[in-house]
């Protein structure tokens, strides 16, 4: 087993496109879940509307920049539509409605009814050419040894981590303000916030919408990298990647999503490489074969999420006092 190769591959993923995309997506979810306490189980829906808003706009002849605006606006509207009926109710209702809405949205985009616009199960491709046309990075490979990216990936990464940096700056401004204090108060105790004159519903709605818009950016970024949107990519699992990342990095912390995403993708990729090598070397005999690696990785992911939530709800590096999350 070439452990060095597996580690390097995992490291490349940890700073690569998925890590950047999910850091961004998790920043949005962190605003909703980490700071405001909203149990949004349909975060993937905002990624979907972002990506599709952009892809459909370009596909119908619009410019890419307009597509980005459409994607963001679509996510804001989605937050409004989901939030209004549910945000006055308990946390679990929001969770139920959002996970359901995400699935419904995916099925709708996939349906033959919406196909004239969304191209159904085939999805939309090649809409981000204008972005790659302006790539200023000279052709070549950048990095050391196996740890290298080509100029296309470098350009995408620049966009991705650039967006992450901007979103973090935005969050810094927002969460260090009295607005940020108000949403944290709501997270800790809604009734107390109400009794102090805070418009809890309004704050939650703002948080849901803004977090969704950041999620939409992440969706667009992934779509640009792949030059492809396809309904079956937007499964609920994506939401729970983001949840795991938020909890891993520490909910309600500024850099949590970034740290969480890097660690998450490193572990996830390492597990994959390690298990694949182990199966190839026959460690598991006839019990497991290579097709089982995917499912096992997801089962382990589930165990990891449970373990984190039970033993480290404040994140891997969180302080003990912050353990009080969600506890009475």
């Amino acid at each position: 087993m070439d452990l060095v190769k597996i580690l390097i591959d995992a490291g490349r993923t940890a700073v690569g496109v998925p890590a950047a995309a999910y850091a961004l997506s998790s920043i949005g979810l962190n605003l909703q879940f980490g700071y405001t306490g909203l149990l949004n189980f349909g975060h993937v829906a905002s990624m979907l509307v972002g990506a599709y808003g952009m892809a459909i706009t370009v596909d119908s002849g619009g410019p890419l920049w307009l597509g980005v605006i459409v994607g963001i606006v679509a996510a804001l509207i989605l937050g409004l539509i989901l939030g209004v009926p549910t945000l006055r109710l308990r946390a679990d209702y929001l969770a139920i409605v959002t996970i359901a809405a995400g699935e419904i949205l995916r099925l709708t985009v996939r349906s033959s009814w919406a196909a004239p616009l969304t191209k159904g199960i085939f999805g939309i491709q090649q809409f981000a050419d204008p972005f790659f046309d302006v790539n200023p990075i000279p052709v070549g490979l950048y990095g050391i040894g196996r740890f290298r990216f080509d100029e296309r990936t470098m350009w995408v990464l620049l966009l991705g981590w650039g967006l992450v940096a901007l979103a973090t700056l935005f969050m810094w401004k927002l969460t260090r303000s009295p607005w940020g204090r108000a949403i944290r108060a709501i997270r800790d105790d809604e009734d107390a916030a109400l009794s102090l004159g805070k418009n809890v519903f309004g704050y939650k709605l703002q948080s849901l919408m803004v977090g969704g818009a950041i999620g939409a950016l992440a969706g667009m970024f992934l779509a640009i990298d792949q030059q492809n949107v396809n309904p079956d990519a937007y499964i609920p699992l994506l939401t729970f990647y983001a949840f795991t990342i938020v909890i891993l990095g520490g909910p309600g912390t500024l850099f949590g999503p970034i740290i969480g995403s890097i660690i998450f993708w490193f572990l996830f990729e390492f597990l994959d490489g390690f298990m694949t090598a182990a199966v190839l070397e026959g460690w598991f005999g006839d019990v497991l074969d290579s097709t089982d690696i995917g499912p096992i990785r997801f089962a382990l992911f589930g165990i990891g999420l449970m373990w984190l939530m039970i033993y480290r709800p404040q994140g891997l590096f969180g302080r003990r006092e912050e353990m009080l999350i969600g506890e009475q």
Binding site: A182, R184, A185, D188, D191, A192, S195, L196, G252
Partner: peptide, 19 residues
């Protein structure tokens, strides 16, 4: 409230400032 509702993960100062 009968059962105190302190904002546990806000500091004491923040608890008052938020009001």
């Amino acid at each position: 409230f009968q059962l105190t509702k302190s904002l546990a993960r806000l500091t004491v100062l923040e608890n008052v400032l938020v009001a």
